[in-house]
Design a binder for these strands. Sequence first.
RNA 1: UCCUCAGUAGCUCAGUCGGCAGAGCAAGUGGCUGUUAACCACUGGGUCCGCGGUUCAAAUCCGUGCUGAGGAGCCA
Length: 475
Amino acid sequence: MKRIKINRLLESDAAINKIIVKGWVRTKRDSKEFSFMELNDGSCLKNIQIIADSRLENYAEIASVTTGSAVSVEGKLIESPGKGQRWEIHADRVDVISVAPEDYPLQKKRHSDEFLRTIAHLRPRTNKYGAAFRIRSEMAFAIHKFYHEKGFRYLHTPIITGSDCEGAGEMFRVTTLNPLEIVAFDRLKVSKSELLPDSNAAKMDIKQDFFGQEANLTVSGQLSAEMFALALGDVYTFGPTFRAENSNTSRHVAEFWMVEPEMAFCDLAGNMDHAEELVKYLTLHAVTHCSEDIALFTDFVDKELKDLLDKIINETYERVSYYDAVDLLLKSGKKFEYKVVNGNDLQSEHERFLAEEYFKKPVFLMNYPKTIKPFYMRLNDDGRTVAAVDLLVPRIGELIGGSQREERLQMLEQRMEEMGLSKESYWWYLDSRRFGSVPHAGFGMGFERLLMLITGITNIRDVIPFPRTPGNIDF
RNA sequence: UCCUCAGUAGCUCAGUCGGCAGAGCAAGUGGCUGUUAACCACUGGGUCCGCGGUUCAAAUCCGUGCUGAGGAGCCA
């Protein structure tokens, strides 16, 4: 007989004479006559209560079961006379699969997130993290569902990349060279400057490497995605991304997942329309398909979460240009720790003020000065701003960053020259502007940041199974 | 990387002016009960983050290192 998952049992509208459930004991209350076990199998937030009668032949063994132990239960699903649940199981047979010893770290009480991070291999067994990772799974599915419905093609861009100057941050080096050989260079008293990529020593060295040139983990699939948008029309990527920045904040990890749509024949306004539709769709999907898990977060993590999610789904997102935002910040009368300077990038506190206090809803900030944005963003007619857009949301800050891309070859080459980039290493990228170039646009959305928004979890390390941060790669 | 705060029992934390190391929960034992973060009693449990210093005396004051958190920068 096959086991039934607890989420199905709890949905039952009638008693069932014979069922098998398997799971882990969350807590147990004993008496001489009965043992009450709360069993959870991960299929949903709720446990099911098992009543094991002392007349069961292995009752002594059942009584020894501890929190965290695994059991298999055969019995009857019946309506519960007790408070707090509709259904319970009267066990005809309980097989103890394994007993968790007394040093099982998870207790039947609230633990701090900091402590649970030190036992990241066990934290999915808690209510909060179980809920978080069920939502994560459901959101990943919803992303594919959204794009499939809209006729986008799912694109797998490379994890290992040879282009080293995408400008999106520090990169992780990929090499098959033995680190000991690098130590040997030190022993030979080769100076550090001679090991830099443009030196002969390093060139000789790099030829021995797997790819014969420097290789890194991707920081963005955008440039590749542009090539496919200019062939398949509308594409998106959804996969891991790596940044070697020494960032120690609640919003950054070294390995994270990013959604990157790229759309041909699309301008900045179309880009924003798309971003707004995506965020609304995903939030609505979470609220309707993960209501029980979301309820845990609205009840125990963030009391204002429900209001925020309603706003995200129902409000029209504000759209304001960089220069208007600067004016607005200057006129707000609000005292900031850092002064608002026209032409400089906005500080986190400025962005938070706009999303959380001024507009009190998601806000698109667009048309930034070209001096603070990458080369591939399309130059506006004013000659000083580019068609960039960030989506700022309450509590998180930047959820989305994107732009309309520079599709004009001469403009693109000019921008690359201004920023000191080598045109040779981007030959294939420039080719796309040579052959059938069209206006196109796209953005990147941090998947973990979306999950923080939807769950109210305040630290990004708590929405990814095994977070990677500077100095931390346990598990 | 910078700024701020923190580190005391398995977990969460208290520890006053520098003067014998504490509580709740968890664990163990026993009792009781259709219980539900069950309840009652008893028991065990400490490198007070490490190193150095001041002092008759340091969990407490000073220096330094490590770890964690919050904020900043970078960004998604």
